[in-house]
Amino acid sequence: MTVPVRQGVKVWQRRERAAQFAIWAAWLVGVAVLVVSWSFISEKTIWPFVLDAPQQAADLGVRMVPPDWSFIGQLWRPMWDTLNMATLGTVMGIVIAVPVAYCAARNTTPSAAVLRPLALFVIVSSRSINSLIWALMLVTIIGPGVLAGMVAIGLRSIGFCAKLLYEAIEEIDEKQVEAVRSTGASAAQVTAYGIVPQVLPAFAGISVFRWDINIRESTVLGLVGAGGIGLPLNSAITTLAWTKVSLILLVIIASVVFSEWISAKVRQAII
């Protein structure tokens, strides 16, 4: 950045004129896109329906209360399935994610030419497919039920956990690793003493965070037949049993609050 001198005074500006202009232009384009899309969406919207929305919502709300508490006896089992699906799926995801992350991290990968791109591909493909879509496919492959949901959750978790974990591995302090290596430690010992202690907090945090997400994701997997609380939710919606729907939603909210509470506790404990 050049500092121009005007009338003997050194003038300092944050950006050069061209850069400043480019930023203005970018803002202009952004606003224009927003305005155009707004008008496009508004053209395609049937406004009477939207204006009517508050009444519709209120109507639905009225039909939802009071929740049908007598139904709760039939929810424990699917809720238990949901928790199992989320937990076992998370475990499966983590077990596979650890070696994938090890191969994907630049500083630990055994082969930067072959294994690293492969690991990155596994991560990207797992991350780019939503667990609902995984579940859709798995239901057709291994049939409906909790197993399909668990595998769907697991496959989706691999990418998430492996990506965050390999980033944590890449951020470790290399000096600690070097120090362990300089004692004559073997490669496995260098990993166990130099790398593992450094990524362990991140690992625990990632696992619990993913478990927390998976509880929420597994509640909807029943919609495509993969078991859990989503199954009764789906049938309640299709039979317009709104009081049951509201009860199921309450149960889901309770479970999510519970999982968030647990993951917050765990994260507090490991920091």
């Binding site: 600690q176 070097e178 004692t183």
Partner: peptide
């Protein structure tokens, strides 16, 4: 690795495994 056992190293900023 065997030879490194006989070479003790002390580091700038200690390089202890912090955790």
């Amino acid at each position: 690795r065997r030879a490194r056992r006989k070479l003790g190293m002390i580091f700038q900023e200690y390089a202890l495994v912090e955790r």
